[in-house]
Each structure stands twice: as structure tokens, then as C-alpha cells.
Write a protein that binds this DNA or RNA. Sequence first.
DNA 1: GCAAAAGTGTTCGGGCTACACCCATGG
DNA 2: CCATGGGTGTAGCCCGAACACTTTTGC
Lengths: 253, 253
Amino acid sequence: MKIQGNLIIFSTNNEERKDVRRLKEKKLQVLLDENNNLPIFEVSKNEYIRRTAERKIEEIFKTKKFYIEQLYTWGNPEFYTEENEILVTYLVIVNKKNINDLPENLNFYDISIKNKENTTTQHVELSNEKKNIQYEIATILKRNRESVEYLNRLVKKSNISELTTIIIHTGIKRLRNRIENTNIAFSFLDKEFAVSELQQVYEIILDKKLISANFRKKIEPMIKRTDKVIKESAYRPSVQYTFNEDYIKKSVL
Amino acid sequence: MKIQGNLIIFSTNNEERKDVRRLKEKKLQVLLDENNNLPIFEVSKNEYIRRTAERKIEEIFKTKKFYIEQLYTWGNPEFYTEENEILVTYLVIVNKKNINDLPENLNFYDISIKNKENTTTQHVELSNEKKNIQYEIATILKRNRESVEYLNRLVKKSNISELTTIIIHTGIKRLRNRIENTNIAFSFLDKEFAVSELQQVYEIILDKKLISANFRKKIEPMIKRTDKVIKESAYRPSVQYTFNEDYIKKSVL
DNA sequence: GCAAAAGTGTTCGGGCTACACCCATGG
DNA sequence: CCATGGGTGTAGCCCGAACACTTTTGC
């Protein structure tokens, strides 16, 4: 029995706009190696698997500041090419500012997802300056035994493995669930941040524009105002906030 | 590297009341072996792990009618006694009426949970006619690295392993999450059921009384009325409903 | 008739949505 | 002065909570 570990690492990028007076545009990113695979680690006989995952991340970024949780364990014919293998995937969130290093073979890719009209198919584009990966992934309703299940399938062959696309898909779904029920959003940001930055994190994960007036009210109990201000855009400076430690939403496994 | 599988199997029991004119009282149940452990299966070299889990369940109950999903993979020093082991847990729901057999060493236990006032500790009692297992489990907030995490710990030694109590706890949390977001509640019931039966499933999983008028309105789009009626109590018969196949809530992994 | 369950209708309040509007800043 | 973002207030709407009330049945 062969057992492996796997990392789906999310981060965000701040991109300058052409119009320099506008806010930087945040994008959700994922880390892939030179073969468009997720970073893998070998599960050793002498260490607990989660600790091994953490050590691998520390090795990649030379930092101990990141969020980690188990995503899923793959060993299902639906998703797996080889029999007799098990792959445990961990979901990781890093703030780029906490990264001290990045191996040459690993690169962050912007994630862009477009829903195809009147289908359950999504067109996904992973891109950076050097490379552009495109694929389409469909959500299929599978009626099996006592219930229904949602499966994902890669509908067009691409230069990325089906399992990788499914893990990315599953990871984003998990982010969406977590961002509504926990405080993971703050893992993308510095200790101090503007409300608009937090809102951008919500927007890129939920993939929709939010009305800032309503967003403020919603997250108000989660954050604490500081005395500092910051000038992100060319206009009115924004107040810096920190996470309100008193407010901890119960997380649901 | 040793790898094993594990099953947390939930079901419900219909208990007669002393007052025979009242409705049978549903209770949430879990399946344990004679040593108070969850059913284990060995992961073979020749089969996918989920399929192995399904085969084990079919072997236990002599039925193919059950709900299954992966719960969690344990291999963390926090929860595990032995190093160098991995345990993949699957969550299962069965309707007793679909069970054709049950090995002698396996028994269902009623689950009763009481929150201890002003603490995050819960007193749990697992009981049937022959046996009674009691323990207390605490939820501990652990601040680690970039975020907070909830851990569970067995606070009083008991004749049940800590890992088993944590898996039961995690399983119930998962049921609570799923019952609000998917249609798993129906896996506990027959194809045709009364609204009050469905309500009882919600009540035992969420562990609180619901107001039936509001419950009806909430689940109305999920169910379809049939022509049949059933007399569960000694009083007014109730209309039989089925699951409305048109209504399928998106499940979130 | 009454106790228990099945089933319907109504009111109230909190939270989300949408939008109007003011403030601050730099070009 | 105006475009853009920061920030506040408010009105409407929907949904859930609470509860009153009717119907049906067996003892």
C-alpha cells in the first residue's frame, strides 16, 4: 500500500491596475510545479502525516506562518488512475508577505473561473506571466445507492491531470464553505488590514461582487478598529483593522 | 506504513413510550463492537478504499441500501496513540428496516448528549439493554500558527477509546452540517414517511425541539405529498410523503 | 369530552439587499 | 471640481421564531 501526501496551497496576489489611481486588484492563486502538479510529499514511517505536511510547507516557503487543514483523502476509482494508492490532501493558505522563499520549480497561478451559461460546466484558467493552463470541469449528479452525490469530471483533455483539477475545485468549494463559517479569510491578510482588503478576499473566493455597506455591517463584529490608517488607493485613506480575537466562529468539520 | 479503515454507522431507533397512545420516540444510535470500538476493515492491495468500506458494510448488514461519505483521515499525534498508522473513517447512515442481518458482536447504542452548564464539556451516554458507556468530552480552543482550531479531548477516562469518542463527536458534527445543507435526513427514513418522522430525525441530530408549524414550512419544498396516510399514534393519521427528487440541495464537501 | 397529534394561519423581529448619501483625497 | 474609494444611514423584504387555532382520532 503506497501512501502519499499532497498540498493545495492558496494565496492572493495584488495586481497593479492600468489606472494607477484605482485599488490593486486581488486575485486568488494556487501553487503548481513545473508539470502542473500540486506539491507532493512522502509520508514517512517516523512522523505523523500532518506534521510531515507542515514540514514540507516550511521547507517550501521558509516560514511557519500559514493555515492548514485536511481537505480529503483520495483513493476512489472515480478520481484515481492507479489502484493501490492513497493520497491525503491538505489545504493551505499563505499570505505572500510571510513567504521567505520559493523554489524555482514552483509557481503561483491566478485562478479565473467562468460558468458556462445554462450548464454545470466551468471554464477554468490558471495563468501567470510564463504559462497559461485552461480546462473545463463539469459537475455531474450521480445517483448512487441511498443518496445523490456530486462528482466532477474534466471534460476536455488538458495539460493538467484530472485529479489536480478536482482537488483545486474541491479546495475552492471548501474555501467557500469555510469563509462563511470560520475566520480563514484573515489568513490571506496581514495582521492589520483595510475593510476593503477583507472584502476583496471574500469577493475572490465567493466569486461575486459584494456591496461594501452591507459587507461592513456583516463583518463588523469580527474586526477591531485600530488608530492607524493606510493609503492603498490614491484617495481617502482607510482605517486599519485587526481580527477581533473575542469573536471566534465555531468551525464545522 | 499501516493503513486501516473505520466505520461510524448511525441509525435511529423507534422506542415505544410507556403511554402507548403517544408517538414512538426516535433516538440517534451508533454501532459499536463488543470492545466499544468502531467496526474496522483492512485496506487491501486489490481494492479501492471506499469500495472496501462499502463491502464491509454490506457484509455487516447484508444490504446495499445505505448512505456513505468519507469523514476524516486520522494520523495526527493529537488523536492517535500509535505512530506510523493511518485510519480513514467513513460515515454511514442506515435505516434499520433495510438491515437484513447484524453480527452478534456488534450492537447499536442510543446516544444521549448533555451539555454541562457553563462549560464546553459534554456528558455523553451510549446505552442499550445490555450495556452503558459514559464519558465526558471537552472542546478545546487551540491557537496554532495562523488560526484557531477546535480540538476534542476525553476528560474522564472511560472504557471507550479517546479516538472513538472523537470520531463519534466529529460524526455528529458532520451530520448537523449535512442535515442543514443536503438531504441526508431521508437516509434515516423509509421511502414514505410522515412529516413528524422527518422532524424527529432533525430533532435528534440537532438535539433540540422544533416547532412543527415552522418545520413544515421549511421542508415543504423538499417533500412530495402522496395519497396514502399512516396511523403512527393512536390519533389523527398523517399523510405520507416522499422525497421530492426535483429538490436537490447542493452539497458542500 | 379530552388528550395528543396533524395541520394551517398570522404576527413580529432580525438580518440581508439595495441604494442614497456624505466624507476624504489627489490629480 | 471630479473621479474613486471610505464610510454611514435607511427603507424594504424575506425568513425564521413564536404562537394561536382548527381538525382528527381513540379512549
